[in-house]
């Protein structure tokens, strides 16, 4: 098998799943991270408690363990998830916990004077968060979220271990059938690296765009 054929085979079969899992899990992580990050700062004890339990559990146990748990254990409880759903859910929940810390620390990093100015202008808490605090915190989050996005992309390779046909899974299949081991895994590394490039570039552009004029 030529290097080109290997590339085509990987791209044709595995790329779609890798991108699909990356994108869906990233959206899920961002939503969960935002909600649990805000919930962690709630004045209600119960809400704070629930969100810290979520964050600590998903940060404290391994992603692969979480993935196996969702794929192998949940069916025993009658919850049967497809490998794709289990993969997206596990990665989204796991990275959501990390994102929540990013969200929380960025919000806490907005100077307290901003809050005081909002009170003096008689804004409600919701208005203050939506119009003043979160837009400023968001700019601070972007570099960290960008790093997490790359980590998330890398972690999607784990779904190959629950039989989902992503890039890595397809590489393993090719390896078992063609024995072009060196070419296959080199190509696989290069493909992951290349997918990551526009992601980091995109986050850099986003950062520039949202911080325009504010230096």
């Amino acid at each position: 098998m030529s290097t080109y054929e290997i590339f085509v085979s990987l791209a044709k079969v595995g790329l779609k799943v890798t991108l699909q899992v990356t994108f869906s899990a990233a959206v899920l992580a961002l939503v969960l991270g935002g909600i649990s990050g805000l919930a962690r700062m709630s004045k209600h004890k119960i809400i704070r408690f629930i969100s810290s339990v979520y964050i600590e559990i998903f940060r404290g146990t391994s992603l692969l363990v979480q993935l196996f748990w969702m794929y192998f254990v949940l069916p025993m409880m009658g919850i049967r998830l497809s490998a794709l759903t289990a993969g997206i859910l596990a990665i989204g929940l796991n990275f959501g916990a990390y994102c929540s810390e990013i969200v929380r620390s960025a919000i806490q990093a907005v100077p307290s004077g901003q809050t005081e100015a909002c009170i003096a202008l008689n804004m409600t808490k919701v208005q203050r968060m939506r119009r003043v605090i979160i837009p400023q915190a968001f700019v601070m989050m972007i570099p960290n979220l960008g790093n997490q996005l790359i980590e998330l992309l890398k972690s999607t390779s784990l779904v190959s271990m629950i039989t989902l046909t992503d890039l890595t899974y397809q590489a393993n299949i090719l390896n078992a059938t063609t024995f072009e081991t060196t070419k296959i895994y080199s190509m696989l590394l290069i493909i992951y690296f290349i997918i990551g490039l526009p992601l980091s570039k995109g986050m850099k552009l986003l950062e520039q765009k949202v911080s325009e004029g504010r230096v």
């Binding site: 390779s157 890595t168 060196t182």
Partner: peptide, 21 residues
């Protein structure tokens, strides 16, 4: 940069399967 931006899992496969070649 390259090592950082590619998955550990694939790197493990690389070390375990490619080096013996």
């Amino acid at each position: 940069q390259f090592i950082r931006n590619t998955p550990l899992l694939v790197q493990l496969y690389f070390i375990f399967y490619v080096f013996p070649q």
